[in-house]
Simulated assay, not measured.
Amino acid sequence: MTINRRELLIAFALGSVAGGLCAAESYPSKPITIVYPYAGGSASDTLTRQFGEILSKALGQPVVVESRPGAGGSMALEQVTRAPADGHTLVLTASGTMSVNPHIYNLKYKPVEDLAPIAILVDIPFIAVSNLSSPAKNLKEFIAVAKARPGTLSFGNAGTGTQAHLTQVMFLKAAGITANIIPYKGGAPMTTDLLGGHVDAAFDNAAAQVANVHAGRVRPLFVTTQTRSPTLPDVPTADEAGLPGFVASGWFGLAAPKGTPLPIIEKLNRIVVAAMRDSATRRKLLEAGWMPVGSSPEEAAARARADLVRFGAIVSQLGLKPN
C-alpha cells in the first residue's frame, strides 16, 4: 500500500494536534516562570505578580516572577525566545518591547516572530509628572520653563526604547521644546530620583504614579489618553492642558516562546479572559491605573504587528538610530 503526500500531511497534522492536546492536558507539570523585563518594584511588576497569582490559582502550580532588566526589556525577551516551548516560561510583553525595541536596538531576534502571544492584559495610559520643587505646576508652565532654559530640564523615563521614552520624545517634539532626557533601568529608580528632587520631571505609565499623585508626592501635568483616566479624574489630558491632539497609549501582554503548543496558549488565554470578566479583578486593575483588555492571541499578534509598523515610522521621523 502506498501513502501519497497529502495523506502524509494529514497524518502529520492530526498527530501534531493530538500531541498538542496531550501536552495541554498534562500542562503544567512543574512551576511556571514569568520573566519580567524591568527592574523590580514598579507598577508593572505588581501587575505581573497579580497575573502570576491568577495563573497559579487556576493551574495549581507555583508561578515565579523573575526580574531581568536591561536594554529596554530586550534581554528578557531574548532569554524567553531561547527557552523550551512548553509553556513553563512566559514573559511580560509590552508595546515597547515588542514594537518599539526592534527599531531602537540591534536585536538578535524578532519579537513579533519569535514569541507566541497569549493575550494583551491591559492598556497603558501615560502621565507626565514633576517633582514638588519644580517651577512648572502645569503643562503650559512646563513648556514655558523648557523654552526659557532649553535642554536643561531633567526629564526621566524608565528606559531607552520603552514606549514611554518614545512617547516622551514625541511629546517634546509636539511641544516644540528640548529637555535633558534621562533613561533609567526601570520605573522604580526613576521615581526614587523624582521624589528626591534629583530629576525635574518624569514620563511614566500612569499606574506607576497613581499612588504618588493621590498622596501629593508629585505634581501631575497631564495624561496622554483621549479622555481623562477614571483613576485620576482631576488630571487633564494633554489636549485639555494645552497640547491639542496629543494622544498616546501602550499595552502590556503575556507571551510564550514560539512553538508553544496552541492548546497551551489557548488554555492560558482562557484563564486571562476569565479573570478580565471578574468584577473584582477589573476593579483592582482600574484602581491601579490600568485599562483591562484580555484579548485573544490573534488580536494580540495583530496589534503588535500594527504597532511595529506605526512605531517604525515614528522612529524614522524622529531620527532615532538603533544602538
Score class of each variant (00 low, 15 high):
L59T: 01
I264V: 15
T231W: 03
D278A: 13
I120L: 08
L195T: 13
R68P: 13
R228M: 10
V122L: 09
V315Q: 11
A255V: 02
V309W: 09
C22V: 11
R228E: 03
V223I: 14
T46E: 07
P189Y: 07
V309G: 15
P84F: 15
G73I: 06
A148I: 05
T237W: 03
R270S: 09
A146I: 08
G312R: 14
T192P: 10
K321M: 15
I3C: 15
I3F: 12
Y109V: 06
F51S: 06
I54H: 03
T178G: 07
I34C: 12
A179W: 07
I264F: 07
L243K: 01
G242H: 05
G161L: 11
V122M: 03
P261N: 10
A158M: 07
L320F: 06
I314A: 04
L166H: 01
P102G: 01
T46C: 00
L318T: 02
S249I: 07
F51K: 03
E113T: 02
Q50D: 03
I118F: 02
Y105F: 15
L55K: 00
M190P: 14
G242V: 11
A302S: 08
K321A: 09
A179V: 09
D45P: 04
A211Q: 08
L21C: 12
V145C: 10
M170Q: 11
L195R: 12
Q61Y: 06
S279I: 05
V63C: 09
I314M: 12
A13H: 11
D234W: 13
I118D: 00
D200W: 01
R310A: 03
A174G: 06
G161R: 03
V272F: 09
I118C: 06
T33P: 09
L153H: 05
P263A: 08
A238F: 04
G156R: 02
T227R: 15
Q50N: 14
I265S: 05
T97H: 09
T227W: 07
M1G: 13
P135S: 10
A288W: 04
E113G: 13
G250K: 07
L92T: 01
V213M: 11
F51Y: 12
K267W: 06
L262N: 10
R228V: 10
E240M: 15
I118W: 03
L285G: 06
L21P: 08
R310F: 14
A211T: 13
P84V: 12
M98W: 04
P292W: 06
Y36A: 04
G161F: 00
Y38I: 00
A11I: 02
F155H: 10
A241P: 04
L286Q: 14
A206K: 01
F126R: 00
L115C: 13
A207N: 12
K140T: 12
N180F: 14
Y27R: 01
